[in-house]
């Protein structure tokens, strides 16, 4: 009797989504890196990229969307929550789909670097573009332009760190693979 492969583990999926959502919330609100331009940028994208590289499209979409949405609500930007849910959800979903490894038993993080980077860049475009459009409708396209470089930088940092961190986590905590499959 060995542990059966996932299949029949609905609780596992729920647990994965819930914990990673909470990690995204914490990284959005708590972990900040100083930047010269606008004070701080958040590291939520690192977790979204990480989730996409390791746990696939659905977990990444829920963790990214729900996590940033909840963070907006807690952080006092409730009006952004539905938009963050859609934008970061789509970001996670697309990164995971593009980066997905064709080899059975591999996670996306095992894919060639170039593939991870391409996926990450698509994620950056979705994120920065999504906020530009959303911002345009909410408070005018002129003001929304200001945020594009900041968002590109934040999501770019997310891709670079996401690649490094997903590899270091795979090494430091090998059972993560059994969570991912």
């Amino acid at each position: 009797m060995s542990n059966g492969e996932t299949g029949n583990k609905p609780a596992m999926r729920i647990a994965l989504m819930a914990v990673l959502t909470a990690v995204v919330v914490v990284f959005t609100l708590l972990v900040r890196v100083p930047t010269p331009i606008k004070g701080y940028i958040s590291l939520c994208d690192v977790v979204i990229v990480f989730s996409a590289y390791l746990f696939g499209p659905w977990v990444a979409a829920i963790a990214g969307g729900l996590g940033t949405g909840i963070a907006d609500v807690i952080g006092g930007y409730a009006q952004w929550a539905p938009l963050s849910f859609l934008i970061h959800g789509l970001q996670g979903l697309l990164i995971a789909i593009i980066a997905r490894s064709p080899v059975k038993g591999n996670v996306a993080a095992d894919s060639p670097l170039i593939r991870l980077v391409i996926a990450g860049v698509v994620g950056m475009i979705v994120m920065a573009g999504g906020y530009y459009l959303a911002g345009g409708f909410l408070y005018g396209f002129e003001a929304a332009l200001v945020e594009i470089p900041l968002n590109l930088m934040q999501s770019g940092v997310g891709v670079v760190l996401g690649i490094i961190v997903s590899r270091s986590v795979l090494k430091a905590y090998p059972p993560v693979r059994s969570l991912a499959l």
Binding site: A18, V19, T21, V23, V25, V26, L29, L66, I70, I74
Partner: peptide, 13 residues
Amino acid sequence: VFTLAFRFIPSIA
């Protein structure tokens, strides 16, 4: 998932 996320936010923080 929503409820569980709120359970984990304080402890992860």
